[in-house]
Write a protein that binds this DNA or RNA. Structure first.
Lengths: 236, 236
DNA sequence: CAGTGAATTTGCGCAAGAGCAAAGATAATT
DNA sequence: AATTATCTTTGCTCTTGCGCAAATTCACTG
């Protein structure tokens, strides 16, 4: 295979046709189409806690995350952050066009160092029409977001803090879990504060909860690192 | 104007081209197209608390609500109900096709007597392609749902019970408000229990809250009837 | 390798709100 | 008009978990 392929406008050592073509949004495309699409793409490399875009910004681009995890966040008037959902590599985000919206309604902040591709929103319709796989992927993206948000609403509305935290951690372990000898490690830095923003509680309550689980051997957690040892036990 | 037009398969005294054509999903259609679409529609008339479809059902149809209000509800394992959002007349619902989903993920239950039209899901793509207004409307429907769910998540995660209840009632007053001399009346039966299911609390807390507001003259509420007298004051 | 700053742990007191129970009110039914 | 079912109110207790504060640990930087 003929390796390095240049990406516009920034050259990249690690992004290849093969990698991109595997991503759901670009499934079923032939090589020429992939090249065509990549020509139009902009590469974004962001450090931890940097944003791809902010709530209220004009929705000029849509994105596909290549690497790293991204939090989709809403900030309240008094500065509190609420994490609404997480984006995993291969998923689209910033797809305001799918909502007929002129502006982003949330902020996309990198949980860890990340890479994403973006395209001008004006290309959205032509992608939808020209690439069936893209249309399917965009619908699935919307669907899984809606599902995730539903689950979060039900969780917030009916469960106690402890259950909410457990559920949030298990979901992340599923989306961003990496096998280790210890157990499943969540593959990006995750503080008590972060978890509290996902579950609508305080970092104190999260800390207490996790300490207890640590004592019981259910999880193993150091500073901003979380390893789930007994996923089943957390369900109880 | 030539009045009664028959709807398939059930004849109807109150549904006319003029009414339907005004609905957002069918904006920009000419009379022939409206007739075409209505030919394919099924009419549903449901009583209060009856469902249009249930969570888990095969998503065979998509709907447009013509009259009445509909709650979109999720039920937890232990039978608790959570109201995720409300559908107003003119809006689409049951649009699993937009999520590339085979089944409904929630239950649609009529808050009051209601009328809806439905079409087989297999027509979704042809509607999307054939009627630009329909495509736009479906995106807007998804967008407003996502926005509403985001707001609910933020509300549940950061606000106290009292604020959540106030916000929920104000939203309904906006979506389903009818002007009266007393103030804005929510135009369908709404019990304390219903409100608690929207806000993730108990009917007791809702009752206490509303009683206080009643004493302060902010609302006026009898059994399953809610009138908002001072919307601004509820914001505090 | 010491120093600095961020993340975490933990204790304590308190308030919000859930849970339970019982009474009262309102609408529907016969 | 009497009966019944449903909805609502309200009091009381008890738990959850927040808010505040202080101590501690950990990672990074100079």
């Amino acid at each position: 295979m003929n390796r390095p392929e240049t990406l516009h406008p920034e050259k990249s050592e690690h992004l290849f046709h093969e990698d991109i073509a595997e991503l759901l949004p670009f499934a079923d495309l032939d090589e020429a189409q992939v090249r065509e699409i990549l020509q139009l793409a902009t590469v974004h490399r962001v450090g931890p806690d940097k944003t791809y875009f902010e709530e209220g910004d004009s929705a000029d681009n849509f994105f596909v995350l290549l690497d790293g995890f991204t939090r989709v966040v809403r900030t309240t008037k008094d500065g509190e952050q609420v994490v609404v959902l997480h984006i995993a590599p291969g998923q689209m985000f910033g797809i305001a066009k799918a909502f007929e919206s002129e502006n982003y309604t949330m902020t996309a902040r990198a949980a860890s160092k990340g890479i994403a591709l973006s395209w001008p929103s004006k290309l959205w319709d032509s992608f939808i029409e020209g690439y069936p796989g893209f249309r399917t992927a965009s619908r699935k993206a919307v669907g899984s977001r809606v599902t995730e948000m539903q689950d979060k609403i039900v969780s917030l509305a009916t469960q106690k803090v402890e259950q909410r935290i457990a559920q949030a951690i298990l979901r992340l372990a599923e989306q961003a879990g990496k096998e280790t000898e210890q157990g499943i490690e969540i593959d990006f830095p995750l503080s008590r504060q972060d978890i509290s923003e996902m579950t609508g509680t305080t970092l104190h309550s999260v800390s207490r909860c996790m300490s207890r689980w640590q004592r019981q051997g259910l999880v193993r957690s150091q500073r901003r690192r979380v390893v789930v040892c007994q996923p089943e036990a957390l369900l109880a």
